[in-house]
């Protein structure tokens, strides 16, 4: 071992040299990190404080606020410990979803049942129509698929605008254009589906294998033919998976549409809420939740099979 080299005992190192080794200094934090943390804290304080620019969110007082509830609503919505409430609940489920005259005993003709069916219909139609429109738009929304830069830029801007408008706002606007009912709901969620599927699918287009496209071009294919035969088959599985994902989102989104008059289960929810019939609202929430969970499980298993 080498002789002591300095005042500090050091580990023997294979590159022991004349220059004393030092532990390298830890680099100071990046200005980005510092600015980011400060900005984060400032933004949080501004938005959480109870003043003009904040919503008055106080995490410490929150448990107290939660405990200080509206007893009528709580008892209506989830008074599970009460036997009478449970009996009422079962009775509600029975009157809304069974029909002794029907061959299957089940019936979806009540306000809640038909609302539920309409929600599914709106989601299905919006997803199918929206996805069908989205595939060509997704191709045009990518650098590879657009025939020229202008098309790419125009489609991209339009879709960004589309995505910036929340689905309920679309629904409210379509209610003005085609009046109340399921139709404005279908149209609104179609726009929403286009926004989601085009965005996600065109991101996939940017990462495809260019080989087949070049081969198609070399064989003399037109731009459209090259895209159809060489690009679309590559993005089809992701596209299908995103469309299913959009269906899940649509089923969730369809519940809100009723509040602006665009059909679906939200209409029933809004109706019973305004009647202060919280038990019926609770039934709706429960049944709708079951539906969403079932559809999600099916969709997830199909999506796993796809990609």
């Amino acid at each position: 071992m080498s002789a002591p080299t300095g005042e500090r005992p050091r580990r023997p190192s294979p590159v022991a040299s004349a220059r004393p080794q030092r532990r390298p200094r830890k680099p100071p934090p990046q200005p980005f990190t510092l600015l980011g943390l400060v900005g984060l804290a400032a933004f949080t304080l501004v938005t959480a404080w109870d003043w003009v620019l904040g919503i008055g969110f106080n995490p410490i007082a929150l448990p107290g606020e939660l405990a200080d509830s509206n007893p009528a609503m709580v008892e209506g919505l989830f008074n599970i410990t009460d036997a009478d409430w449970r009996a009422d609940y079962a009775e509600l489920l029975r009157t809304h979803f069974t029909d002794p005259d029907s061959p299957w005993l089940l019936s979806l003709d009540s306000r809640i049942g038909s609302g539920l069916v309409e929600t599914v219909q709106i989601a299905v139609l919006a997803t199918l129509v929206g996805a069908a429109v989205s595939l060509p738009l997704a191709v045009l929304n990518s650098r590879l698929g657009a025939p020229n830069r202008t098309t790419h830029a125009v489609i991209k801007t339009l879709n960004n605008i589309n995505r910036a408008i929340p689905d309920v706002i679309w629904a409210a606007l379509f209610v003005v254009l085609v009046s109340v009912g399921a139709l404005p709901g279908i149209l609104a969620l179609t726009m929403f589906t286009i926004g989601v599927v085009v965005k996600l699918t065109s991101d996939v287009v940017d990462g495809v294998d260019l080989g087949p496209v070049e081969a198609a071009r070399a064989a003399g294919a037109s731009h459209a033919a090259a895209m159809r035969t060489a690009l679309v088959p590559q993005i089809l599985p992701s596209f299908a998976s995103f469309s299913l994902y959009a269906f899940e989102l649509n089923l969730r989104g369809a519940a809100v549409l009723g509040f602006v008059g665009a059909g679906g289960i939200g209409q029933a929810m809004n109706y019973y809420w305004s009647q202060l019939d919280f038990e019926a609202v609770s039934v709706i929430i429960f049944v709708y939740l079951v539906l969403v969970v079932i559809v999600e499980q099916v969709s997830i298993s199909v999506r796993r099979r796809l990609v």
Partner: peptide, 14 residues
């Protein structure tokens, strides 16, 4: 799994 609107409605009483 629970949609936001369902959560929001369930929280209104509190």
């Amino acid at each position: 799994a629970v949609p936001e609107i369902v959560l929001a409605i369930a929280l209104i009483p509190f």
